[in-house]
Design a protein around this nucleic acid. Structure first.
Length: 987
RNA sequence: GCCCAGGUGGCGGAACUGGUAGACGCACAGGACUUAAAAUCCUGCGACUUCGGUCAUGCGGGUUCGAUUCCCGCCCUGGGCACCA
């Protein structure tokens, strides 16, 4: 027999697949469709990465299995080729991006084909193809026409190294996400897409899809929805208090703490300051502070460890609308202009940042939420509202505190009880006397604000909703009354050293009391609770309060309910060359006319986007082709290099015919990649973006696998674009509101030793070398076997060889093959002499099939290895068993499987075979090893028939020599039998 | 700081719903074949051991006949978010 020679068989089969177009997908209504998608690669100059291979192989395995399961499978491939990396690569190599792209795509194509992926190459395209980006531009035009695109003066993040504006999303830790370069603020006119209009749907519709939970969480967090209120605070000039100067609007998620707002803070960029510079008495000081703040980079400003700083804005005051209190206004850089209104009401008692600030600048702190300690309550029992007083009694001489030890419940607490309408001090004295006998105690002071507790009392079998007040007493003498029997039964009084009280107490209410008494309760209370010091709202729970105050604000026109998002409009302009031109034209003349209210000249065809952006019109003649220019280098001024090409920029206004100019910004990299999967279903259509009939058949994507690094931005953007296309009917309603039914993510492949691969470290793995040395099948199986698919994993060179050995041993198995039989007989034990092997075979069919579905490829491969080990032990192997094994292997190592299949005498591709099904009855072994545990330790294993009954098991084990020895004459106190597994004895 | 993963032999990792910890592979050691090497095949491979066993899944507790798995507290690693009001 010839040797296993992947270098010969792999190209052979790749050629066959290619020539016969076996993976080309056609719509076929008779078959169920499956659309498997991987993130299309960015054809960089570095060539294909091992990470691409891992993700592609995984989806390839799934798609190959689906085909064998009878699905009509679409597994497409394309290239995401616009953008900075290529442009920078081209600059470095002194070639044009067009040239670089073509070269890189050729390399990638070759490499991808050599890996044996079952892509439908007939549908392949690049985002840089004119007939593709025509439709990318078309989508932008549709958004523009519907008012979702707007040119706005934006404070943008300008990467000084890439020389482009970055979306907020692309700034990581204050530096550029891709190059790590310095990011500065710059004001520029930018096209933005109003993704925020879709924020709610982007959260809500996550309920309809099957994404990994952490991906959903990331999406939700990124959108960052907060429900709260907008509240207007009136601002007064201290010299003229009858008329408000202005209003300061804030957003808060805790309108229920409004009574506790003791100051306000505005961001350094806030308008208020420049608006009232004449009124502000310390304007110079404020201005200095703002200058200082400006100098700090975003990174410094957002450093959480930094101490908070700020300056009071003097000469003006705000009025707390709910209680009329006059409160100071500060400027401080812990408030950001970019979120909410850039101003806050500060509630130091219930917000950590405000607390820290208030402590530093000595601003009053007012508690308005009392903690509610929720314990176990019983819904079927009555709930009693009570005012409870709690007494801390101190023996000053001995430095001891009077505590109570509850006998039945085990509570360790202080004397306390209901007030029954008495005043607090009297009630406390009475409780102390009743519970402990001590008669003479002197009231010293009240400790803190009240708190609430909701709990079930076993000794009275009812629930209590109690308001707890704490009083502090000093013991005057030891004179005491006899405590009555009933009280004695329940608890005993004990004196505990003051420094041991903390350990003694074991109930959360008294724990809180003690914290407050000993001054350890430093931090503010952030949780929900019951309103105090809040006038008519006292006693309301946080939830009730929020609802009521929002209504009150609405009635008094002092505010309203408000929802805030962290998500910002999506900055869609890039001032570089290698991207899709934004297909718009600007006419200065039209803008002037549009802004003149008396103007008669109006474009009758004007639509929403154009009203929003006066003077801007869409280029109806798409595509706007990216001109081929020689000097495509970015400019320092931040204009696109396209601006230099005057003959391209100059055009006629489509409305008034006057001289007009083209937009020179291009689209970001995301533009082409957020709808590519749609185009795969109809890649050649020159009449429309996609034929609805084809879209209807293939979409949505059934399974989308990609990197974790794309699960916020790319995923969010493409979901947004999909929803928009859905709304305008460009994708049919039947496709659903979400583009991807299922999304999974693979873990990154790290370099040897667990460090990130990078060119500078010189630890980049080049797949070509491995294909050459071991073949693509080995590489594929290795990348599946190396570890859990969803976790990052280090490349281990020496392990690749083990996988090669595995494939080679399968090849060598041919030696043991019986003469091929014509009939597959796998479902009967009696006809086959080796029932154990049949069981293992069926277990393997089950395990491999299920593991592929769960992307547990590593254990699927391990199971096939187990089967191989068993097959190798046989003298002879039936063709049936062998065939089944090869079929299971085929998605993983398609070339080898195809070759062996042909050697078995088959003319058709193994891909035409059906994926095997296992027989539930055959997975079960006829015997099993019964484990005998004595006192939790394994002492013996006995081989028993599978259907053994409990009585038999007991009989068998009690006769067993080893068991008898361990029992040592004793009768087991307890015998537990777990069917089919073990028997556990306790002696 | 908050959220999410995770911590198991020399290494990558297995382990269903609480039921034999270490599947499978790598590395290593010994042996066979070979003039020799590679390849291949066979055997062994958590630690300790008085060879009966004992201890072992980051650390400390708990629940249980039984815990890698569940509960409480802590330590460490990776990832995400980060003054979001």
């Amino acid at each position: 027999m010839e040797k296993y020679n992947p270098q010969a068989i792999e190209p052979k089969w790749q050629k066959v697949w290619d020539e016969q177009g076996v993976f080309a997908a056609e719509e076929d209504k008779a078959k169920k469709k499956f659309f498997g998608l991987i993130e299309f690669p960015y054809p960089s100059g570095d060539g294909l990465h091992t990470g691409h291979l891992r993700s592609n192989t995984a989806m390839d395995i799934i798609c190959r299995k689906r085909r064998m399961q009878g699905y009509n499978v679409l597994y497409p491939i394309g290239f995401d080729a616009f953008g900075l990396p290529t442009e920078n690569y081209a600059i470095k190599k002194k070639i044009k991006p067009q040239e670089a792209t073509a070269k890189n795509i050729a390399t990638f194509t070759k490499q991808l084909k050599e890996a044996g992926f079952s892509f439908d190459w007939s549908r392949s395209f690049s985002t840089t193809d004119e007939d593709y980006y025509k439709w990318t531009q078309w989508i932008f035009v549709q958004m523009f026409k519907r008012g979702l695109a707007e040119k706005k003066k934006e404070t943008i993040n300008w990467c000084t190294s890439c020389k482009i504006g970055l979306a907020n999303e692309e700034v990581v830790n204050g530096v550029c996400e891709r190059c790590g370069g310095e990011v500065v603020k710059k004001i520029k006119e930018q096209w933005v897409l109003k993704i925020t209009k879709y924020a709610d749907r982007l959260i809500k519709d996550l309920d309809t899809v099957d994404y990994l939970e952490r991906i959903k969480t990331q999406q939700v967090n990124w959108i960052g929805k907060s429900v709260g209120a907008e509240i207007r605070f009136k601002i007064y000039d201290l010299r003229f208090k009858n008329e408000p100067l202005d209003e300061l609007v804030v957003f808060t998620t805790r309108p229920d703490t409004l009574f506790g707002a003791t100051f306000m803070v505005v961001a350094p960029e806030h308008q208020l300051i420049s608006n009232f510079q004449d009124t502000i008495s310390n304007f110079q000081e404020v201005k200095n502070y703002i200058e200082e703040a400006k100098k700090k980079s975003d990174l410094e400003r957002t450093d959480l460890n930094k101490e908070k700083t700020g300056v009071e804005i003097k000469g003006i005051k705000a009025i707390n609308p709910v209680n009329g209190q006059e409160i100071p206004i500060f400027v401080a850089d812990y408030v950001m202009m970019g979120y909410g209104t850039g101003a806050i009401m500060a509630v130091p008692a219930h917000d950590e940042r405000d607390y820290e600030f208030a402590k530093k600048y000595n601003i009053s702190i007012k508690e308005v939420v009392a903690p509610l300690i929720k314990k176990e309550t019983k819904d079927d029992k009555p709930t009693e509202k009570r005012d409870v007083v709690c007494a801390i009694v101190k023996d000053v001489k001995k430095n001891q505190i009077l505590c109570l030890n509850w006998k039945k419940t085990g509570w360790k607490a202080f004397p306390m009880g209901g007030t029954d309408g008495e005043n607090l001090i009297d009630a406390a004295r009475r409780e102390v006397r009743e519970e402990t006998g001590y008669k003479n105690i002197r009231f010293v002071k009240k400790i803190g604000e009240p708190f609430y507790q909701n709990f079930w009392r076993p000794h009275k079998d009812s629930n209590v909703f109690g308001k707890f007040e704490t009083l502090f007493f000093e013991l005057e003498d030891y004179e005491k009354d006899e405590v009555n029997e009933k009280e004695k039964e329940q608890h005993e009084a004990v004196w505990i050293d003051e420094d041991k009280v903390k350990e003694f107490i074991n109930v959360s209410g008294p724990e809180l009391i003690w914290q407050r008494y000993s001054g350890l309760d430093e931090k503010c209370f952030l949780g929900e609770g019951i309103a105090i010091n809040s006038g008519e709202f006292n006693g309301l729970s946080t939830t009730e309060f929020k609802e009521k105050i929002v209504n009150w604000l609405k009635e008094t026109v002092l505010g309203k309910k408000q929802i805030q998002y962290k998500l910002h409009d999506w900055i869609f302009s890039r001032q570089r060359y290698w991207g899709e031109p934004i297909p718009l034209i600007f006419c200065a003349n039209c803008k002037k006319l549009a802004e003149n209210p008396k103007s008669e000249i109006r474009n009758p065809k004007l639509n929403e986007g154009e009203i929003l952006n006066p003077g801007w019109y869409v280029e109806e003649n798409l595509p706007v082709v990216l001109p081929d220019i020689d000097d495509y280098l970015p400019t320092d001024e931040g204009d696109s290099p396209l601006a230099k090409k005057e003959d391209w920029v100059k055009t006629k206004c489509p409305v008034c015919g006057e001289e007009a100019r083209r937009e020179t910004d291009v689209m970001p990299n995301w533009a082409g990649s957020n709808w590519y999967f749609i185009r795969y279903t109809d890649p050649k259509n020159d009449q429309m973006m996609v034929d609805p009939a084809k879209a209807k058949y293939w979409l949505p994507v059934d399974w989308y696998n990609g990197g974790m690094e794309h699960t916020t931005l790319h995923l969010l953007y493409s979901r947004f674009v999909w929803k928009f296309l859905y709304d305008i009917g460009a994708v049919p309603k039947e496709c659903g509101v979400e583009p991807y039914a299922k999304r999974t993510a693979h873990g990154m492949i790290l370099g040897e030793g667990g460090v990130k691969m990078s060119k500078s470290k010189g630890n980049v793995i080049n797949p070509d070398e491995y294909v050459k040395k071991y073949g693509a099948d080995t590489l594929r199986v290795y990348e599946m076997f190396m570890g859990p698919f969803d976790q990052p994993i280090a490349w281990e060179d020496k392990s690749v060889n083990g996988v090669y050995r595995f494939l080679n041993r399968i090849w060598l198995l041919q030696d043991k093959l019986q003469a091929p039989s014509s009939k597959l007989q796998i479902n009967s034990k009696s006809q086959i002499p080796n029932p154990k092997l049949v069981t293992l075979l069926h277990q393997t069919i089950k395990k491999v099939g299920e593991d592929i579905e769960e992307m547990k490829f590593n254990t699927a491969v391990a199971q096939m290895m187990i089967l191989l080990n068993e097959l190798e032990k046989q003298e002879e192997i039936s063709a049936t068993h062998y065939s089944l094994f090869i079929i299971l292997l085929s998605p993983f190592a398609p070339h080898l499987a195809e070759e062996l299949w042909q050697k078995l005498g088959h003319k058709e591709s193994i891909q035409k075979e059906n994926w095997p099904e296992y027989d539930v009855n055959l997975i079960k072994a006829e015997e099993f090893e019964l484990v005998v545990q004595i006192n939790g330790k394994v002492r013996e294993k006995i081989l028993v028939p599978a259907e053994i009954g409990e009585a038999e098991v007991k009989e068998l084990t009690m006769k067993n020599e080893k068991v008898l020895k361990w029992l040592n004459g004793q009768e087991p106190k307890k015998i537990i039998y777990v069917k089919g597994k073990l028997v556990s004895m306790v002696i």
